[in-house]
């Protein structure tokens, strides 16, 4: 039983020498009238260049907030972000807004869940892509427009010339999300943050968008953090998967290990409650209970109250990610105590 706590600077991917993104002890708190909401509670991970990390979790698990913290777009004033976010040698959390603006767009870009609300309704799609290019590449508007057209072509929007002149409300949901992807890629970022980009779309369109994103990711060699609550989507696109719950990583490792041989009771429950393959007639196991109240988190494991395997010590706290395989980590006291054969 050799316990090994995850070192934040230990590369997750064996091929990466220095990680593109290194997040240490990331914590996000919101001050609200009801009290302090602890949305993210000590997240650690490294992301190699070109690696795709899928963050899987229910709503309120802190996955979107983590992305926004990396992007620096959480509402100021009532938000406290602590820890360290190192991107390509830049410490983002201590970086002044003005310098951050030079990274946002050309180095790190983001796509949002609902492209209808993430695009400005009174500007054409072309203007919104071109303004990003003008801002970061210092070219004139006509050059930027020509490039915007190329990007619309790249995300396979038909008749891109005409689409440049279209307003967001004149496009379908799938087209809008393609336009949003074109916008995000327009300055060739090294890191793409995708916040549930397929959740608001029809299932058939979802697949198209996933395939497009995967293809573009390979073509451009960019790293992606893909946040989703959909296990199928996560397995489709990710190299590595992290499972979040109560603002923490419960399990983190190569996608096939985490999804096919889950080690944490929560991941296990999540997989059992997911519809897949030939399950007709079978009972779907749901996880009993509700996600924890982030304004009133328990001291120990946030999942303990719903966990069928919990022991009294689980409520005591101090549960860190520990290695359960090559690059595979799990934050479960019993897994740590009893070894890998927990669910075998």
């Amino acid at each position: 039983m050799n316990r090994q706590t995850l070192q934040a600077d230990a590369p997750l991917s064996a091929t990466a020498a220095t990680p593109l993104l290194s997040v240490k002890d990331l914590a996000v708190r919101f001050a609200t009238r009801e009290g302090v909401v602890e949305a993210v509670n000590g997240v650690n991970f490294n992301l190699a260049r070109g690696e795709v990390l899928g963050i899987l979790g229910e709503s309120g698990s802190g996955k979107s907030v983590s992305l926004r913290a990396i992007m620096g777009i959480l509402p100021r004033g009532r938000t406290t972000v602590t820890g360290s976010i190192n991107f390509d040698g830049h410490e983002l959390l201590s970086m002044p807004e003005k310098e951050l603006d030079r990274l946002r767009g050309p180095e790190i870009a983001m796509i949002f869940q609902e492209p209808m609300t993430a695009l400005d309704p009174v500007f054409t799609v072309g203007e919104q892509i071109a303004e990003t290019i003008v801002r970061h590449e210092g070219v004139d508007w006509s050059t930027a427009n020509a490039r915007a057209k190329n990007f619309l072509e790249m995300v396979r929007i038909p008749s891109p010339e005409r689409r440049l002149q279209a307003y967001p409300h004149e496009m379908s949901g799938g087209m809008r999300q393609r336009a949003m992807i074109a916008l995000a890629l327009s300055c060739k970022p090294k890191l793409l943050l995708a916040d549930e980009p397929t959740t608001a779309l029809d299932v058939t369109v979802q697949i198209q968008i996933i395939l497009l994103l995967r293809e573009l990711q390979r073509e451009l060699g960019m790293a992606v953090i893909f946040v989703t609550h959909d296990v199928g989507v996560a397995s489709e696109i990710s190299d590595a998967v992290a499972v979040m719950y109560g603002g923490r990583y419960m399990e983190h490792g190569p996608a096939e290990n985490v999804l096919l041989a889950p080690n944490h009771p929560y991941t296990h429950g999540l997989m059992n409650s997911t519809v897949h393959g030939s399950m007709r007639g079978q009972r779907l196991d749901t996880i009993p209970g509700l996600p924890p109240d982030l304004a009133n988190l328990p001291k120990g494991c946030p999942f303990a109250a719903r966990c069928g395997h919990a022991i009294p010590e689980c409520e005591q706290g101090g549960i860190a990610l520990s290695a359960v395989g090559k690059n595979h980590f799990s934050a479960c006291l019993r897994v740590e105590k009893e070894g890998r054969s927990f669910f075998a």
Partner: peptide
């Protein structure tokens, strides 16, 4: 309060823009 304001920050637009 709308998402596109976050999206504008996320693409590093200048305050003026």
């Amino acid at each position: 309060s709308q998402e596109f304001i976050s999206a504008l920050s996320a693409k590093g637009m200048a305050r003026r823009r």
